[in-house]
Every structure is written in structure tokens, then in C-alpha cells.
């Protein structure tokens, strides 16, 4: 009973964050709601394996990441969700292109988030993991089952895509 009570408190406290993570990873509110429920269900089942000395967020976020990535994989129905590193590398932008902070104001997070949500899964997932969840490249590589360099390439491409779409929208006023 005590275990259940403790879990319920954690659920209430962390639901928002888990939902947020899932929403950013899956880029859909409804899917994220299902995913968040599933994540807490999985967490509940293995709650006795949870090490109390580990931050709860870290633990549940790992479950959430794994679950969402599985979901995306199942959606794309093939393992190569994150593409081929060398192909991606060919499309890397020139180094002197304007970066996001020059294209869009810091206040206009809505537009940027919209652009992020519109990214293909293979760019959005590493981006969210790296900059929302702030996982290291190594952790992302492990979770996506790709190399660290591949993570770098995907992030690079993701940012490029964002720059392109933000520039095309012509929103905000850079610096």
C-alpha cells in the first residue's frame, strides 16, 4: 500500500514532465497522453526495481524515451528510422549559414516549437533528447542504437532543417 501511495505522489508530480517529453518526442498530444500512461504503467510494474538513490526523473525519462522511440520505430515499421549516417553527412550545410538565434527571436518560442514538431522523427527525436532532456551524445547513441557521430550528424541536419523552415516562414526578427 505504501508503495502504491508513493507511486501515486510521483505520478502526480512527474506526469506533466513525462507528458511534455513524450509530446516533444512524438509530436502529438494525443499520442503523448497514451504514451505517458503507458510509461507510468511500465514504471509501476517495475517500481520495485527503482533505486531510491537515483533521481526519479532520470529513471522515468529513460522509460519514456525508450517507449517513445519504440513507438516511432513501430510507426515507421523499419529499424532504419534514423537513416544512414553517410547519406545524411552529404547534406550537411555550409558552415557560414545563419543560425537559428539569428533567424528567430528568443521570445518566439511558439514558432520554433512548431517547426520542431514538424521535423521528421529522425531529426526531432535526437533534438529533443539532446536539448530538452539534455542527454549526452553517448546516451542518445545508445538509445537510438546508432553511433555518436551519427547523432551529431542528425542534430546538425535537424538544426539545418529548422533554420530552413524558420527562414522560409520569415517569422520573428533576428538580431
Amino acid at each position: 500500500m505504501a508503495r502504491t501511495a508513493a507511486f501515486e505522489i510521483l505520478y502526480r508530480d512527474y506526469y506533466g514532465r513525462v507528458f511534455g517529453l513524450c509530446r516533444r518526442l512524438l509530436s502529438s498530444g494525443d499520442l503523448a497522453e497514451d504514451a505517458a500512461q503507458e510509461v507510468f504503467m511500465r514504471a509501476y510494474k517495475s517500481f520495485n526495481k527503482y533505486d531510491i538513490n537515483q533521481p526519479f526523473w532520470q529513471w522515468i525519462a529513460t522509460i519514456a524515451n525508450n517507449h517513445c522511440i519504440d513507438q516511432l520505430r513501430a510507426r515507421s515499421r523499419k529499424q532504419a528510422l534514423f537513416g544512414d549516417e553517410t547519406v545524411e553527412l552529404e547534406q550537411v550545410p555550409s558552415p557560414d549559414a545563419p543560425v537559428l538565434s539569428e533567424l528567430i527571436s528568443n521570445e518566439d518560442t511558439g514558432a520554433l516549437n512548431q517547426a520542431i514538431a514538424a521535423l521528421p522523427d529522425r531529426y526531432r527525436v535526437p533534438l529533443v533528447l539532446a536539448y530538452f532532456h539534455q542527454s549526452s551524445y553517448d546516451d542518445i547513441a545508445k538509445q537510438l542504437n546508432i553511433s555518436r557521430n551519427h547523432v551529431g550528424v542528425l542534430l546538425l541536419r535537424a538544426k539545418q532543417r529548422l533554420r530552413d523552415s524558420v527562414a522560409a516562414e520569415g517569422v520573428g526578427g533576428g538580431q
Partner: peptide
Amino acid sequence: AETQHLVTALRA
């Protein structure tokens, strides 16, 4: 700066 920008946007 761009990374920071992204972090801020995503966290919002």
C-alpha cells in the same frame, strides 16, 4: 547561442 535558443524553446 543556437543551442541555448533551442533549449529555451523546447523548455517553454
